[in-house]
Amino acid sequence: MTGEVLVLAESSGPAFRKAALEAVTEGRRLADLLRVSEIVLAIGNGLKDPASELGKYGADKVILADDPLLAIFHPDYYRQIALEAIKRVNPSIILAAATSTGKDLAPRLAIHLDTAVASECTHLEMENGKLIATRPAYAGKVLLRVKVNSSPSIATLRPNVFTAREAVPGKKPTVEQIAFNRPDSRMIVKEFVTQGAKKLDLTEASVIVSGGRGMGGPQNYKILEELAEVMGGVVGASRASVDAGWRPHSDQVGQTGRTVSPMLYIAAGISGAIQHRVGMINSKVIVAINKDPEALIFGFADYGIVGDVFEVVPALTREMKAFYGKT
């Protein structure tokens, strides 16, 4: 007998993370393929209307763990909640977003359930009742198709690759509560320091304007911030500019930074080294602005402008302002 599909939905404040809703949408699709229900574990603190929110994305049932101590990810607390939900549901598939939380929690669960995790998947399919996952590896140079031989199969989904789709308006899933009894833990989660005023994380942004060594210095990122602001995006960076101390590491895109897949990635003054490329190659559209017509980045950008960032970027900001003003 095939078990249900269980999705672990994490939150940030009262709302679910976008990446979590993407996982719920994909979980719905798999549940339909398997003709089973989709059950979503909602974890957080002070979640706003979790049942109808998750119902919109397809959940049949919501297991709710809402507690002040669950506001920030704590491995021991989240593990306990997840194992409790798994015990109740007995799923054949468990999905989570490949966020810092999902990637920390999933392998821990795999040990406790004696199963395996397919990490950072970009595509899922079912074959003879088994989950087959596609995932990039070797710096995105290859795609692996992997199979989890044990049950339940666990997969974490790369943010921004799957689409969060509101499919079932007005659907009201049933709700079941999990009471949180704080387990003994040798870890204390002390504080969460937000990084500047940035609202969106790079991995969740749909527009990213990234600057490299060609920006010439930290003060010049202002022009990228202005462009990002107009487009509702965030600013990223190459490693060269992070290592120079111009930008924080959390802004770094690439193999030793973030892997991003926005709708639009604008690379300004970035040469397009392989280690940068792997972090952004799955963007839907890539725009490159570079003064060197031979720069590697023009080899894989969809649109390129050969020019000086200090001229082109401000002009683009003006043009975008005009564009958004019109529509």
Binding site: A118, L143, V146, K147, V148, F300, D302, Y303, I305
Partner: peptide, 18 residues
């Protein structure tokens, strides 16, 4: 428990334009 069934090259990006 986790097995690779196949390895593929990623689909090439369509050529861009300047």
């Amino acid at each position: 428990s986790l097995e690779i069934i196949s390895v593929q090259n990623p689909p090439p990006r369509p050529p861009g334009k300047i």
